[in-house]
């Protein structure tokens, strides 16, 4: 399992892997926001957490369809299906590796982008924390979409369409927790804890569903 994790990590970070593209996409999305909204710093600070969240969401959806595609092309997927280790576990480890390679950098770079958007330190910290808790959920839900995409000739765009409605709750609780840290009356903890609960919930559902879909599409 550890070997699989390291292998996936290596594949994602070396040239041609999708990790860097995701980060660049995140940067580009957030950089475009001021051009759309105008350079008003107050307004940017207000929409900052939301923009960071939407950017991170789109960026993590971007690389998802590749999660199993390469394995399918070189036949490694069939090996995984026949292995003794449960497929659910394999999928989970692959999700973890994918998140480490493409989700974690997004979290790490978000404070920098927060500065661009004139966000308060508390808001930056809160956004980073919520992204840390929420992006795994996106990857785990997306794993199911990626497994579906394996069966499709051109899956990329369809995956985003299929996954987007399902990640709405993640976005809602992530953004409201980030805002709650800045705006006084709203408490930070309840939405944050719900966000973690969603992540944990999909840590179970996501890989299981992805495993079933992988088996179905390779029959």
């Amino acid at each position: 399992m550890m070997a699989l994790y390291l292998r996936d990590l290596k594949l994602a970070t070396r040239a041609g892997g999708g990790a860097l593209t995701g980060i660049l996409f995140f940067l580009a999305v957030v950089a475009v926001v001021p051009f759309g909204l105008g350079p008003d710093l107050k307004l940017l600070a207000r929409v900052g957490p939301a923009m960071l969240w939407i950017g991170a969401l789109l960026a993590s959806l971007l690389g998802l369809d590749r999660l199993f595609q390469a394995e399918r092309e070189d036949g490694a997927l069939d090996v995984m299906l026949m292995q003794e280790t449960p497929l659910v576990l394999v999928v989970f480890v692959k999700c973890l590796a994918h998140w480490t390679a493409s989700g974690l950098p997004l979290v790490l770079i978000s404070p920098l982008l927060g500065l661009f958007l004139n966000m308060e330190p508390a808001a930056i910290l809160a956004t980073m924390l919520t992204l840390l808790a929420g992006t795994p959920a996106i990857t785990l839900i997306g794993a199911m979409g990626a497994a579906v995409a394996v069966a499709l000739p051109r899956g990329g765009l369809l995956v985003s369409i299929l996954v987007l409605p399902l990640v709405v709750p993640v976005l809602i609780f992530g953004v409201s927790a980030a805002y709650a840290a800045v705006e006084d009356p709203a408490p930070f903890l309840p939405p944050f804890l719900i966000l973690i609960a969603i992540s944990l919930f999909f840590a179970v559902i996501g890989p299981a569903a992805a495993a079933v879909a992988l088996r179905a599409s390779s029959e």
Binding site: I194, V212, S217
Partner: peptide
């Protein structure tokens, strides 16, 4: 059908969460 079935069921499980979150 099988792939869609997985998606339908995950969506079904998700509907209460979406409702609650909204």
């Amino acid at each position: 059908a099988k792939v869609a079935a997985v998606l339908i069921l995950v969506g079904f499980v998700n509907i209460p969460i979406i409702k609650f979150s909204v």
